[in-house]
């Protein structure tokens, strides 16, 4: 017993680092959309990198604590309050039994993470606690659900240094690795792709982020379906990009112009529809170097 759901919000799901080795079964990797905020939340609580958290999208959530617990909220500013008083995010906080935690509406960013010391202990489904609604793996939060975790107390306050706090309101450049069918696209197609500012469309969820902009003229070549990695960018038959995200199908048959670097996808996870995004090229060495540094800092072991 640890939290009772008073209001479930628009879309709140338990997520962890994801279901990493089920591709052969056609199962998505799932997991948190913003790995940066998620990793900080577990880090500040001195949790394992993979401890499950509650991913709250847009807010509308109210939870009642059933125990004393050490928690940490990182990610979007959704007007987080404890007992009706604004409370800090990006730092761990001791809460008491009967405290009411609430998130009202998005102020900066759209996804926030509630982490608890030791992680949520919801059922492990196929090697992960991550919920995938598209695959009917688990369900989203509902009124009167109880989220179990252990009571906890006694840790010194740990917080993110203010100068490292992300600003979710900036326009972002998504760095793209020239992968998959990159070489098949012509120079003029690439110029159009890299020179324009796209806008995040309404069709933007945990499966994929569709972008609006000037379409690239493509031939309707039929491709043989192949495995799609996290962040790969399909150019759909209408000539517009779809960035494949955590709940995306494992295989697909559209042309892919490249793959967005994962830590830039964490920034994309905080974008509202209509936000501007651009693409720029990234080199594989640089991507591996940056990601490795991130993994080492947060002690992420994807093969554990």
């Amino acid at each position: 017993m640890s939290f009772k759901v008073i209001k479930p919000g628009f879309l709140s799901t338990i997520q962890d680092y994801g279901r990493l080795c089920h591709g052969a079964y056609g199962m998505s990797q799932s997991g948190v959309m913003d790995e940066h905020a998620f990793s900080w939340a577990n880090y500040l609580l001195e949790n394992n990198f993979n401890n499950a958290v509650l991913e709250i999208t847009f807010g509308g959530v109210e939870l009642k604590a059933l125990d004393d617990m050490l928690i940490c909220v990182c990610g979007a500013d959704l007007g987080f309050k404890i007992n009706g008083q604004l409370a800090p995010i990006w730092r761990n906080i001791q809460i008491k039994k009967s405290d009411v935690l609430s998130w009202n509406l998005p102020i900066h960013g759209i996804r926030t993470y509630l982490a608890v010391k030791g992680g949520f202990e919801t059922p492990v489904l196929y090697g992960s606690r991550s919920i995938n609604l598209r695959e009917n793996i688990g369900t989203k939060l509902a009124k009167n659900d109880v989220l179990s975790c252990q009571p906890s107390s006694g840790q010194l306050a740990r917080f993110m240094v203010p100068q490292y706090l992300p600003n979710y309101d900036h326009d972002i450049a998504l760095r793209l690795l020239p992968s998959y069918q990159y070489d098949i696209f012509s120079d003029s197609q690439k110029t159009l792709f890299f020179s324009q500012s796209y806008r995040v469309s309404q069709a933007n969820d945990r499966t994929g982020c569709r972008l609006d902009g000037a379409p690239i003229a493509i031939k309707k070549d039929k491709m043989i379906s192949e495995g799609m990695s996290y962040g790969s960018v399909e150019i759909a038959t209408n000539g517009l990009p779809i960035i494949l995200l955590k709940d995306a199908p494992t295989i697909g048959g559209y042309l892919k112009i490249g793959t967005v670097f994962s830590l830039d996808l964490a920034k994309l996870a905080q974008k509202q529809p209509n936000a501007k995004v651009k693409f720029e090229l990234m080199d594989i060495h640089q991507a591996q170097k940056e990601r490795l540094k991130f993994n080492q800092f947060f002690e992420i072991e994807p093969n554990s």
Partner: peptide, 8 residues
């Protein structure tokens, strides 16, 4: 190349 940690 398929992604920062994947090949096809």
């Amino acid at each position: 190349l398929a992604g920062e940690n994947s090949i096809l």
